[in-house]
Amino acid sequence: MDLNADLGEGFGHWALGDDRSLLDVVTSANVACGYHAGDADTMRSVCALAAEAGVAVGAHVGYRDLAGFGRRFIDVAPDTLTNDVLAQLAVLAGFARVAGTRVSYVKPHGALYNALVRHEAQADAVVDAVRMFDPTLAVLGPPGAVWLKRASVAGLRVWHEAFADRAYTSAGTLVPRGEPGAVLRDPAEIAARCVQMATEGWVRSVSGRPVRVVADSICVHGDTPDAVGIARAVRGALESAGVVVGRVESPLRHARQAG
């Protein structure tokens, strides 16, 4: 099981999360590419730290929305969205190369992540950007998302994601952040849920109903309070349960995909 976290989401003198400590725990880093958060200094620093830690670098692409942290839907034209994603990929790839590593996957951020579950035009736009930039890149998102289906048809490698610190509805979607209980706080509870997702393939929803979960990677949000403690608890619990924790592009992941 891969563990990923959203990193590099500071901007200028403003810092968000403990990137260095999280990179000691996670196996994949979703690095902000300057549109919803992040800047040149941050991208270069996080890429260098990820390379040193042996953590996979992923492009955390989003809408051009620094003021809203990328959490507001934008009805951007598909061609413009394709170009925006291409620009973000190109910038992060440059910093990754300087650090001696590479961008190996793409994960949309915030409102774009949610939109791509059903928005066909934007889904096609993002798939086009990834395919044109580097068709060997993997794409990361929720099971059943339109954009993952389109990505698979386009020949891209698809990895399914679950969330450690977010509550699920009975429909298998994330509880909106504005609703009570949407973000989980207790590391022990979160760790137990992750073991259940990894070993049994289900999680209990806010209504109490079990929901099926398919996951190649589990996300711990870097901006969640005590994100480092949560990530450590999750990794420790998974390893204690006999789950192999490894990078998205490890041989284990390829074997799972092929099987």
Rank of each mutant, 00 (worst) to 15 (best):
F133Y: 15
A123R: 04
V139R: 03
S170I: 02
L184H: 08
N114C: 05
G110I: 02
P180G: 06
P180M: 08
A93G: 13
L89S: 03
F95R: 05
L174E: 03
D128V: 00
V183P: 01
V106T: 04
F163K: 00
R185G: 00
G178T: 02
T136F: 00
V106G: 06
K107R: 08
A171G: 04
A164Y: 13
V139Y: 05
Y105I: 00
R131H: 13
Q88M: 08
A164M: 04
G172W: 08
V175H: 03
P142G: 02
A182K: 00
V153W: 01
A93F: 01
A154W: 09
A111M: 02
R150K: 13
P142K: 04
V91C: 10
A87T: 04
R177L: 04
L174C: 09
M132E: 15
A154H: 06
G110S: 09
S152I: 00
L92P: 03
R185H: 07
G110K: 12
A164G: 12
A171P: 07
A93Y: 00
N83W: 05
S104D: 14
M132D: 15
Y168Q: 01
R150N: 05
D186H: 08
L92C: 07
A125Y: 04
A167H: 11
V117L: 12
A121H: 02
E179G: 01
V106L: 08
A99E: 13
R166Q: 11
V98M: 14
